[in-house]
Measured scan of single mutants.
Amino acid sequence: KKVIATKVLGTVKWFNVRNGYGFINRNDTKEDVFVHQTAIKKNNPRKYLRSVGDGETVEFDVVEGEKGAEAANVTGPGGVPVQGSKYAADR
């Protein structure tokens, strides 16, 4: 997939743990970017499923997906693991 931007910061608008996807609002352009659970590179080690939490600040790359921009290599700011959704089960 073609990389559009790297190391972008954004805020998770919403993320559905059961369906495994959601949207991140970019801090720079204010665009909403699709995020799939497979794009989460550093999950919270205490969580079973990969997820990001609503309102969480994340860092990610933006790539060209089939339906427009989507997030890739999602981590917390500075490459730390994401916090994850409060609806995702703990280990």
Score class of each variant (00 low, 15 high):
Lys30His: 15
Asp61Lys: 03
Asn44Met: 07
Gly84Cys: 05
Glu56Ala: 06
Ile24Pro: 00
Ser85Thr: 06
Ser51Asn: 05
Pro77Gln: 08
Arg91Lys: 10
Val8Trp: 00
Ala5Gly: 11
Val80Leu: 12
Asn16Val: 01
Arg26Trp: 06
Lys47Val: 07
Glu31Trp: 03
Lys42Asp: 05
His36Ala: 04
Lys2Gly: 05
Gly10Gln: 01
Leu49His: 07
Glu56Asp: 06
Ser85Glu: 05
Gly68Lys: 04
Tyr48Lys: 13
Ile24Asn: 00
Asp90Glu: 13
Gly22Cys: 01
Lys7Thr: 09
Thr57Met: 15
Val62Glu: 02
Phe60Leu: 07
Gly65Ser: 13
Val12Leu: 03
Thr6Lys: 12
Val35Met: 10
Ser85Trp: 05
Glu70Ile: 12
Arg50Leu: 08
Phe15Ala: 01
Asn16Ala: 03
Asp54Trp: 10
Arg26Ala: 03
Gln37Ile: 09
Ala39Leu: 02
Gly84Ala: 05
Leu49Val: 11
Lys13Val: 07
Gly10His: 00
Ala88Met: 07
Thr6Pro: 12
Lys67Cys: 08
Gln37Arg: 13
Tyr48Arg: 12
Arg50Asn: 12
Gln83Tyr: 09
Asn44Ala: 08
Thr75Ala: 09
Lys86Pro: 09
Gln37Ser: 12
Gly84Met: 05
Lys1His: 06
Pro45Glu: 11
Gly78Tyr: 14
Pro77Arg: 12
Asn27Val: 08
Val35Asn: 01
Ala72Asp: 15
Leu49Ala: 06
Gly65Ala: 10
Ala39Glu: 14
Gly65Asp: 09
Ala89Gly: 10
Lys7Phe: 04
Gly68Met: 04
Thr11Tyr: 08
Val3Trp: 05
Pro77Leu: 10
Val63Trp: 08
Thr57His: 15
Gly65Cys: 13
Asn19Ala: 15
Phe15Ser: 01
Asn73Ala: 09
Ile4Gln: 06
Pro45Met: 12
Glu70Ser: 14
Asn43Cys: 12
Tyr48Val: 10
Lys41Ala: 10
Asp90Ile: 12
Val63Tyr: 15
Thr75Glu: 07
Phe23Gly: 01
Val35Gly: 00
Thr29Ala: 03
Asn43Ser: 11
Thr6Asn: 14
Leu9Ala: 14
Arg91Cys: 14
Gly20Leu: 02
Lys1Cys: 04
Asp28Met: 01
Leu9Asp: 09
Pro81Thr: 11
Lys13Phe: 03
Glu66Ser: 15
Ala71Pro: 00
Asp28Val: 02
Asn19Gln: 15
Ser51Glu: 06
Val63Ser: 03
Glu64Ala: 13
Ala39Met: 13
Lys67Ile: 08
Val80Met: 10
Ala39Gln: 11
Lys42Gly: 09
Gly79Arg: 07
Asp61His: 04
Asn25Thr: 11
Val82Arg: 04
Val8Ile: 14
Lys30Ala: 14
Asn16Phe: 01
Lys41Pro: 03
Leu9Phe: 15
Ile24Arg: 00
Thr75Pro: 00
Lys47Cys: 07
Asn44Glu: 05
Ala69Phe: 15
Glu31Asn: 14
Glu56Cys: 05
Asp32Ser: 06
Phe15Leu: 01
Ala69Gln: 13
Asn25Leu: 14
Arg91Phe: 13
Lys13Met: 07
Arg50Met: 08
Arg46Trp: 10
Pro81Val: 09
Val35Cys: 13
Phe34Leu: 03
Val63Leu: 13
Glu56Lys: 03
Lys86Met: 11
Val74Arg: 00
Gly20Ile: 02
Thr75Lys: 07
Leu49Gly: 05
Asp54Ala: 12
Gly76Trp: 06
Lys30Met: 11
Val17Gln: 06
Gly10Tyr: 00
Asn43His: 12
Asp90Pro: 10
Glu56Gln: 06
Val62Thr: 03
Val52Met: 09
Val74His: 00
Val33Arg: 00
Val12Asn: 00
Arg26Phe: 02
Glu66Leu: 13
Val17Asn: 07
Lys47Gly: 08
Ser51Asp: 05
Ala39Phe: 06
Val17Trp: 05
Val52Pro: 04
Gly55Lys: 13
Trp14Ile: 02
Gly55Leu: 08
Ala89Trp: 11
Val8Phe: 01
Gly55Ile: 03
Ala5Met: 14
Lys2Asp: 06
Val62Cys: 07
Asn73Met: 07
Thr11Val: 10
Asp28Gln: 02
Val62Gln: 03
Tyr48Pro: 10
Pro77His: 06
Lys86Ser: 12
Asn16Thr: 03
Ile40Gly: 01
Tyr87Val: 07
Lys13Cys: 06
Gln37Lys: 13
Lys13Arg: 09
Tyr87Lys: 10
Gly20Glu: 04
Glu70Val: 11
Lys42Ala: 14
Val74Trp: 00
Lys86Cys: 09
Ser51Gly: 08
Gly84Tyr: 05
Gly22Tyr: 01
Pro81Lys: 06
Lys42Ile: 13
Val62Pro: 00
Gly10Glu: 00
Asn16Leu: 02
Gly68Arg: 06
Phe34Ile: 04
Gly55Tyr: 07
Gly10Pro: 00
Thr6Leu: 15
Gly55Glu: 09
Val12Asp: 01
Ile40Met: 03
Lys41Ser: 15
Tyr21Lys: 02
Arg50Gln: 09
Arg91Thr: 11
Ser85Tyr: 06
Gly78Arg: 10
Trp14Leu: 02
Thr29Val: 06
Asp28Glu: 04
Val33Asn: 01
Val80Lys: 12
Gly84Glu: 06
Gly76Val: 07
Thr29Gln: 03
Arg18Met: 14
Ser51Gln: 05
Ala72Met: 11
Thr75Trp: 03
Asp32Gly: 02
Ala71Tyr: 00
Thr75Ile: 05
Lys1Thr: 05
Val35Trp: 03
Asn19Lys: 15
Glu59Gln: 11
Asp90His: 12
Lys86Arg: 13
Ala71Ser: 07
Ala5His: 14
Asp61Asn: 09
Asn43Arg: 09
Val17Met: 10
Ala89Met: 11
Gly53Ile: 07
Gly53Lys: 12
Asn43Trp: 09
Gly84Val: 05
Lys1Arg: 05
Lys7Cys: 09
Asn27Lys: 14
Arg50Val: 07
Gly55Pro: 02
Lys47Pro: 05
Thr11Arg: 12
Phe34Asn: 01
Val63Ile: 15
Ile24Met: 02
Thr57Phe: 13
Glu59Thr: 08
Thr75Leu: 03
Thr38Met: 09
Ala5Trp: 04
Ala5Arg: 14
Lys2Leu: 05
Gly20Thr: 02
Ser51Met: 05
Lys2Ile: 12
Val33Gly: 01
Gly76Glu: 05
Tyr87His: 13
Val35Phe: 10
Glu31Phe: 05
Pro45Ser: 13
Gly53Asp: 13
Asn73Ile: 02
Asn44Pro: 07
Ala72Leu: 10
Lys67Ala: 08
Asp32Thr: 07
Phe15Trp: 04
